[in-house]
């Protein structure tokens, strides 16, 4: 398995024991990245009337949520039952399943920092990357993005609005990385050696419990450097060899086990 390594490795360590699943990260992410709210009808498209309605947010198989919070259950009956919440951004894998399959190089892992890119104007919408990603981190624009009347004036300048028919995914709020580098240049600092907190993602910033830690996994001055080595840290589907840059932490064994049921025994694939 070939894992792409970079000098800088932006990564997350998400403390599941701190996540209440409130959903603020998901809202913050949608707002930052111009993900249109899910609307059933499209008043500007007359042909919509000929066919079915667009999907509303209750259809979880059609929603666009770069950051998605999964509910975990320990599977036991009342009163032994326990739940946990697992926020899932894009894992920014070291050996991404999605990248080599893209026929048009619309996604790549080629930038310092290790963030897996997804370029909307290049994407032809074949959805092969979605079939490849076991984390369901990739989303397709099934419909044209639509903001209810007037709401499009409050768009974020951080991400272009994607047309229908292309795939998208979390990019660790990449334009914030660009802004942080600009700020560093302005301040005469090294844009390739950002201090902790200079570059944050929207989900990390908004999380009320600080369950999401973000930083350079390779930089000893960043908190995630130590955190991701914790004995309670694990990665999703470790054994498939995708080598994600997102780590999780939990003191609960059943959570760790569910995050990676391939962990038990064997040498891995």
């Amino acid at each position: 398995m070939h894992v792409k390594e970079f000098k800088i490795k932006w990564g997350m360590v998400i403390d599941i024991d701190k996540c209440t699943g409130c959903g603020a990260c998901m809202v913050g992410c949608q707002v930052e990245n111009n993900i249109a709210p899910m609307t059933k009808s499209d008043p500007y498209n007359y042909a919509q009337a000929l066919t079915k309605d667009r999907d509303d947010a209750s259809n979880k198989l059609r929603t666009l949520t770069w950051m998605n919070v999964y509910e975990l259950s320990n599977g036991k009956a009342f009163p032994e039952h326990e739940t946990a919440y697992l926020p899932r951004p894009c894992m920014q894998c070291g050996n991404p399943a999605c990248v080599p399959v893209c026929p048009v190089v619309a996604t790549d892992k080629n930038e310092e920092g290790g963030i897996v890119s997804q370029i909307y104007p290049r994407c032809i919408g074949c959805r092969y990357c979605m079939a490849a990603c076991p984390y369901h981190a990739r989303y397709f624009n099934w419909w044209d993005p639509l903001w209810p009347e007037g709401m499009d004036k409050g768009l974020s300048p951080a991400a272009s609005v994607r047309p229908r028919g292309v795939v998208e995914k979390c990019n660790f709020c990449h334009s914030r990385y660009m802004e942080a580098k600009n700020q560093a240049r302005m301040d005469g600092e090294d844009p390739m050696n950002l201090s902790e907190g200079a570059y944050t993602t929207a989900c990390q910033e908004i999380c009320p419990t600080g369950a999401i830690h973000f930083g350079d996994l390779n930089n000893p001055e960043h908190a995630v450097h130590e955190l991701h080595k914790s004995p309670n840290a694990f990665r999703l589907l470790e054994k498939l060899g995708l080598s994600p840059q997102v780590y999780y932490m939990s003191e609960r064994e059943w959570v760790r086990k569910q995050g990676d049921n391939y962990n038990a025994g064997g040498s891995g694939h």
Binding site: D108, N110, E111, I115, S117, I119, R122, A158
Partner: peptide
């Protein structure tokens, strides 16, 4: 300079 996608795209 890098020509990675995200160097210029958002």
């Amino acid at each position: 300079q890098p020509n990675a996608c995200y160097t210029c795209h958002k």
